[in-house]
């Protein structure tokens, strides 16, 4: 067990956990931030995607001890009032089916748009290839990303 101070969604949160604990489980079990999902635990599905200093990472394979000062953003912290262009576009295209993968999809897409405000189809494919949607909402996800790109 060790004590960690984390910067999550602009707030400092403290936890006392095994240093090997992946960020995903710290968020879910210790901080009750449930928006970040578990899907595979081996960086294969993207359900756990969060931002670390603005870069998309898989929280399921990120030991808490490696994070240090870096700023963590989860789906709960993506926007104050659900007004991130992606969130608006997601509603416009009514993307989700079951919804379980969607937080991870949005976080991956948000990192993409930050670096590449007008991505091509191929850029989107590349950035989103690590996010599985078992329900098969890929065409809507892609359309929503394009809509969001136009908005911002």
């Amino acid at each position: 067990m060790a004590n960690f101070k984390l910067n999550i969604n602009g707030k400092v949160r403290e936890v006392d956990v095994d240093p090997q604990t992946p960020l995903l489980w710290v968020l879910r079990d210790h901080l009750q931030l449930f928006g970040t999902k578990y899907g595979c635990g081996v960086a294969q599905c993207g359900a756990c995607t969060v931002h670390l200093d603005g870069t998309a990472v898989r929280a399921c394979v990120l030991p808490i001890s490696t994070i240090r000062e870096k700023k963590i953003t989860t789906i709960e912290g993506l926007s104050e009032t659900t007004d991130h262009p992606l969130q608006k576009a997601w509603i416009e295209h009514d993307v989700p089916q079951c919804g379980y993968c969607q937080a991870g999809q949005i976080m991956s897409a948000a990192a993409l748009l930050k670096d590449n405000p007008s991505p091509s189809d191929q850029d989107i494919d590349n950035a989103m290839q690590g996010n599985i949607c078992r329900c098969g909402t890929y065409t809507r996800i892609k359309a929503a990303i394009k809509t969001a790109a136009k908005m911002s």
Binding site: Q32, L33, F34, G35, T36, K37, Y38, T74, I75, E76, L78, T82, Q87, W90, I91, D94, P96, G99, Y100, Q102, A103, I106
Partner: peptide, 21 residues
Amino acid sequence: QKNVEGKNIITGKPLFGMDYY
């Protein structure tokens, strides 16, 4: 009509069994 849970889903609300606490 839009999915009534749409907003909850895209803001990461605890809707699923996995999120039950």
